[in-house]
């Protein structure tokens, strides 16, 4: 028995219109569930670029002279050094010996790896201990208004 054989009584009309409402709601809600992610996707993300070539380390004022900071560069660490004269230098923070993370040594103004006492000078050259070669260097640029500059580390 198909629907057309039935007399179209009030019950049928009610069921049909109920079905139409459900269907309408379903279409609207599924459309919303497509459009919402779409809208969010189109919005530019917080970090606007994959950190393959450059990364913003922070405001220049945040770094004291004669100090160093570890900065995430992609999935690897980089070391940003503010030298005693206020200049910036940046290197890969991965020790060339056994991949430990290096740190800045303020008392001797050197880069130091705690694992096996490897030392690098502020030009990134290995000067003592087991490291076989210099640290990979990155370029550092300052960007923005004077006093508000951002430190940008990028691959050379």
């Amino acid at each position: 028995m198909s629907a057309s054989d039935r007399p179209s009584g009030p019950g049928t009309i009610q069921r049909r219109s109920f079905l139409d409402i459900v269907l309408g709601l379903g279409f609207v809600s599924t459309a919303a569930s497509f459009l919402y992610p779409l809208w969010r996707y189109l919005n530019p993300p917080a970090t606007v670029e994959a950190a393959t070539n450059s990364v913003i380390a922070g405001k220049a004022a945040e770094f004291r002279p004669n100090s160093g900071a570890i900065v995430k560069f992609g999935s690897k660490p980089a070391i940003l050094i503010r030298m005693p004269d206020g200049q910036f230098r940046a290197y890969s923070a991965i020790c060339t010996h056994l991949d430990c993370t290096v740190q800045y040594k303020g008392d001797t103004s050197q880069i130091w790896c705690a694992c096996h006492n490897g030392l690098y000078d502020l030009a990134g050259n290995n000067v003592s201990g087991p490291p076989p070669r210099p640290l990979d260097a990155f370029a550092v640029n300052l960007r923005g208004e004077p006093g508000q500059e951002e430190v940008v580390i990028s691959r050379t």
Binding site: P37, L38, R40, Y41, P45, A46, T47, A50
Partner: peptide
């Protein structure tokens, strides 16, 4: 990992 719902797309 960075774009919202990028994983979904």
């Amino acid at each position: 990992s960075q774009v919202e719902f990028g994983w979904l797309i």
